[in-house]
Design a protein around this nucleic acid. Sequence first.
DNA 1: AGCTCAGTCTAACGTATGTTATTCCTGCGA
DNA 2: TCGCAGGAATAACATACGTTAGACTGAGCT
Lengths: 255, 255
Amino acid sequence: MLAMTLCNTWKGDVESLVRALSLIDDLGPDERLGLRGLPLRLAHIEAGQDIVRQGEDPVESCLLIDGFVCRYKTLSRGQRQILSFHFPGEIPDLQSLRLKLMDHSLGALVASRVAFIAHEAIDALVRQSPGVQRALWKATLVDASIFREWLAGVGRRSAYERTAHLFCEMFVRMKLLGLAPAKSFHLPITQHDIADALGLSAVHVNRTLQDLRRDGLIATRGRYFSVEDWTRLRAVADFDPLYLHLRTPFCPDLA
Amino acid sequence: MLAMTLCNTWKGDVESLVRALSLIDDLGPDERLGLRGLPLRLAHIEAGQDIVRQGEDPVESCLLIDGFVCRYKTLSRGQRQILSFHFPGEIPDLQSLRLKLMDHSLGALVASRVAFIAHEAIDALVRQSPGVQRALWKATLVDASIFREWLAGVGRRSAYERTAHLFCEMFVRMKLLGLAPAKSFHLPITQHDIADALGLSAVHVNRTLQDLRRDGLIATRGRYFSVEDWTRLRAVADFDPLYLHLRTPFCPDLA
DNA sequence: AGCTCAGTCTAACGTATGTTATTCCTGCGA
DNA sequence: TCGCAGGAATAACATACGTTAGACTGAGCT
């Protein structure tokens, strides 16, 4: 199979988007219908490949169907800062609908399936459906809110707290999307990726993970992570899900 | 005079908003007219006072007319992380139009004049003017882009580079707004504020400023800062104004 | 079974930055 | 003119984290 495959819309693909958007805004039947009608161009992305690059001027945005992607910046001396992680149902580069040039890159951390949606199509939908417009704007604002939380974390939290916070966020977001059935979840990222997300070195992430395990807060097996003590993990991380701006407040239904 | 004064609209106040929005999006005559018609509730904010607080659910947003404000988060152990600085003409809490609860606070760094605009009024304008809607969405996206740049800075740049970068950003943004006539500008912030913005300690900011001065990159006199060597400052900071998403690319008209 | 390679882990050492505490300015109000 | 207070500067010391280098582990491939 080619790296990029062109297909027609398959209705099931856009359901994850509807579900993800419903987490932060109330979608009526018309809005759902409008979203379901968006024309999709399906594509496969290999692990490690970029979907969009810093400086480009894309004419479509990318809905993640399956896999795991991150946004990142590359600085002058080659250092990488990961800005966000994204799960199926999210549109990581929705901002390119309004901002002409990409100020960062979007890359796949594992082999992923994405659906490109032409900006023209989104614009047309948004013009005729204020509800969709509202939901999409809100989605970009939640995005920004997560950047703020990360900024505060990198600026003012210790490596230990920061790492705990990342696990809290990943856990809650995955749980809401149905990607973390119980207390454990599959996060296909390396310690190096975690380091680049938290503004740390890979070595120190390793040390910190060991500390978190020793303290009984999390457990890891391969790339499966599990929350061993949600209450304490959350306390250590100073995690308050307010910044995720969820429509229905998250209640940790854990033993 | 009272701390909060109620007044009617004065047309001049909203011109700075029109000007600021024009930096990132092309406003037609209709859009300008719509913006000028927004009802304003003027207020004075004392230095050090909060305008909105984390956790609140405001029903209006705040256009900064005069002064200098910042957004910040307060973490569990009282540490403060400043998330952004804002100049006259900007609406620092525009996001509260769509996001119910504030995930951070907005505070005045000096005595400031602001104009509150009811969310209802903005919503009404946005419904009838897609152009204004577009411009405001874009403004929140530029906001997010700046958060990303700061995140990359705090995560991956040294204190020296990070401080240089802040001055580059402040200089360019102030110049575009007409607040930095020549190469110098008035930034009414303490070294402590700079520390909280860059994720550093105040002591280290002091050391770093001395280094920047020694190297002939900037000069400071009280709270007046000046760029002494734009080319080198920019190089040290790895500053690329792309992330400001300006409509007309910034050309440093410096000797 | 034996490679191979990516990823994890360990160790020793270096340093950028934080902490605490004190002194020194400087602008401003009385 | 003096006194005051907030901010800037300095000094001595502490440490969280980075760097470099190497050994270990396990999943996939032949």
